[in-house]
């Protein structure tokens, strides 16, 4: 009478319902793990992070952050993408006021060579809206 719930789901139905539960949970776990590996191992882990190189107003190239590359930017400098990090080498800008020389790797970060008007930026659905 009291706690009929536990009595109803007593022995006779136990095997069926609980077995179904276990199957359900196992399926859900499997699905979530499969999805996990599908998204995490695709690209650089985050969604669609790209390295965008602009000279002035012109986008001269967009490259995946996850693929190693070495890009010559009109003879002014070279953008190197390696192991998910981006750096700039061989700047010929006359006074080296390139703002940053350290490698960048997160969406929102930029390397700037202002005299040449070159901006190397990592775009994508990263969480950062600005990096200072």
């Amino acid at each position: 009478m009291t706690g009929r719930l536990s009595e109803l789901t007593g022995l006779q139905i136990m095997k069926n319902k609980y077995l179904n539960d276990i199957v359900l949970i196992a399926v859900l776990l499997a699905v979530s793990l499969v999805l996990w590996f599908a998204t995490v191992t695709g690209g650089n882990g985050k969604t669609g992070e790209k390295v965008r190189i602009t000279v002035g107003d012109e986008i001269i190239g967009e490259y995946s952050l996850g693929t190693d590359a070495s890009v010559d930017v009109r003879g002014m400098l070279t953008v190197v993408i390696e192991n998910g990090q981006v750096c700039v080498t061989g700047e010929t800008c006359r006074n080296h006021i390139c703002a940053k020389h350290r490698p960048i790797s997160k969406a929102g970060q930029t390397i700037v060579c202002l005299p040449n008007g070159v901006i190397v930026r990592i775009t994508g659905n990263g969480e950062l809206d600005a990096v200072i």
């Binding site: 350290r102 490698p103 790797s105 997160k106 929102g108 970060q109 969480e127 950062l128 809206d129 600005a130 990096v131 200072i132």
Partner: peptide, 16 residues
């Protein structure tokens, strides 16, 4: 809120 990352001069971020 907007996310602002503060750079670590030696690489990576100090904080977000």
């Amino acid at each position: 809120k907007w996310s602002v990352g503060v750079e670590n001069p030696d690489g990576g971020l100090l904080t977000v």
